[in-house]
């Protein structure tokens, strides 16, 4: 096996070229922007990455470039580790994985392997953390979340039956003094449904993406799509979802599947924007 960079391939019209070697670096450049929120430095870096990728094809497909981006982001994450969200950490791993894939003998196959491995491991870790946490498995976590997290306000109003969830949120300001939350009869069943739904969905994605690709790749894709539709329809966590979409596209077997993931990326971004506006 030799180490090399993929620097020259035949050119096709940009929007119709769905080969992983072309599409995945471009989607990853969008990911660099989406995950850069809340820090001016990270936003500038994300924009710089996107400019380089869309301005210079050679860099977009250069493994050393992406390794460099990965090293910078992961190093930055070390300094910010106490406060950074998981999607920023995951994006750092993906830049490294993309770099390693582009430097391999078979970049597209390696991209798919790396993407499935990262998706599977992220979900497996999330499941382990849930299973080992009694307050999650009992449903208590989602009871509190439904009652105080503004992101769940539409769900808890429409399905849970809570008339005005903002009262509970305001009460949180009285902590550390004890507070009593107001609830409704629909909240506990909804919390249990979310608890087991999350557990089953994440476990399924983990298992099917960690099993060998030959037989299970399609199942891994379907499980990931199902997880994302159910989860992000309810609460579109755009940055984390965008990372999963890029890796979903990287592990897809056909141009058609990659096209659908690409559309999904922008649908999620738009849905997140609309949803945020509606819940403010």
């Amino acid at each position: 096996m030799t180490t090399r960079s993929v620097e020259s391939i035949d050119r096709r019209p940009p929007l119709t070229d769905l080969r992983p070697i072309v599409l995945i670096p471009r989607l990853t450049a969008f990911l660099a922007i989406v995950t850069a929120a809340r820090s001016t430095g990270r936003v500038l870096l994300g924009l710089a990455v996107a400019l380089v990728v869309f301005g210079f094809d050679r860099f977009a497909r250069n493994g050393w470039f992406w390794l460099g981006v990965g090293v910078v982001i992961c190093s930055w994450n070390v300094f910010d580790w106490a406060t950074i969200d998981n999607h920023i950490v995951l994006s750092g791993y993906w830049y490294l994985a993309l770099g390693a894939s582009l430097l391999s003998d078979d970049p597209e196959r390696q991209m798919s392997i790396q993407a499935r491995l990262l998706i599977g491991l992220v979900m497996a870790v999330a499941v382990v953390r849930k299973v080992t946490n009694p307050e999650f498995m009992s449903g208590d976590f989602f009871v509190l979340t439904l009652l105080v997290d503004p992101r769940f306000e539409p769900a808890v109003s429409l399905v849970g039956g809570v008339a005005d969830p903002s009262v509970n949120r305001a009460a949180l300001g009285s902590l550390p003094h004890s507070i009593v939350l107001s609830s409704a009869s629909g909240v506990r069943p909804l919390a249990l449904a979310l608890t087991w739904g999350a557990f089953i969905a994440e476990s399924t994605v983990a298992v099917f993406n960690l099993l060998p690709a030959g037989t299970w790749r399609r199942a891994g894709q379907i499980a990931l799509v199902a997880f994302m539709v159910v989860t992000y329809l309810l609460v579109p966590v755009v940055a984390f979802g965008a990372g999963l979409i890029v890796m979903g596209a990287a592990s897809a077997a056909t141009d058609r599947a990659r096209a659908m993931w690409s559309v999904g990326f922008f649908v999620l971004a738009v849905w997140g924007y609309v949803w945020q506006g509606a819940t403010l």
Binding site: N77, W81, A82, T83, I84, D85, N86, V89, L90, V122, V125, A126, R129, K130, N133, E135, F136, D140, F141, L144, T145, V148, L172, L175, P176, A198, F240
Partner: peptide
């Protein structure tokens, strides 16, 4: 006492003890 929600542990949406709820 690190918050379970941050720092690459992928324990989001499972712990009550989120740093945004810590007074």
């Amino acid at each position: 006492d690190q918050s379970p929600w941050v720092g690459g542990g992928f324990a989001m949406f499972s712990y009550v003890d989120a740093s945004v709820y810590r007074p």
